[in-house]
Amino acid sequence: MTESLAITKFSDLANPTRFLALAARLLPWMAGLCCLLFAIGLYLAFTTEGDYQQGDTVRIMYIHVPAAWLSMMCYSVMALSAIGTLVWRHPLADVSHKAAAPLGAAFTLIALITGSLWGKPMWGTWWVWDARLTSVFILFLMYLGIIALNRAMDDPSKAARVSAVLILIGFVNIPIIKFSVDWWNTLHQPASVIRMDGPTIDGEFLRPLLIMAIAYTLLFFTLHMMAMRNEIWRRRIATQRRMAARTASREV
């Protein structure tokens, strides 16, 4: 174990190098499959019957629900990566949670915006302090905080370790926040508002929803892999530049 932890300058790039080769091979397939699934999912989403109560607005669900699901999955991926950073000190884990944070924020934003668009016809207002919307909004704030923290530090490995701590603290907190927001919501819930989890979902809606969920998940992993690749390249360029600066000063 100590042997594998003995990282020197060049051997610690070995793993990312293998990752880059793997990414180069996998990415075209993942991207292609992702496009295909999106095409099928969107086609189904627009051809299935509308809900008799909600009309065509129910189609927002196919965009909204998978985004909301991914906003949470992304945080779990980040928490796993954070453990990788703190326990195994694996450089790929550093890159992973740094690359995932903006993706998570983007999916959360999509969930919030579509939720708001959906809420307008259903509740007659763009925003209600519904328990779910509120929790997702807090999650969004946490993503932005983590991104800001990552940007505020120069040293990438230190930034990775410190934000990993924050990610884990947030991860422990999410259930508590969810629970307390639910509690708060039942105290203040006006009776007239229609709950989002109304009747159980019909199989008619379930099929496109499932395909869209898979497509979204694949989209996340494709983008995540791309973002990790970019981050590795960015770090290598930074290292090369620093080396260039050093050699220049030695040659004088």
């Binding site: 003995a6 020197t8 300058k9 120069d154 040293d155 990438p156 490995s157 930074a238 290292t239 620093r242």
Partner: peptide, 14 residues
């Protein structure tokens, strides 16, 4: 034994 250290990205000694 066999101490190496980085400072940021730079290897200071190995």
């Amino acid at each position: 034994e066999n101490l190496s250290a980085h400072r940021g990205e730079d290897l200071i000694f190995s």
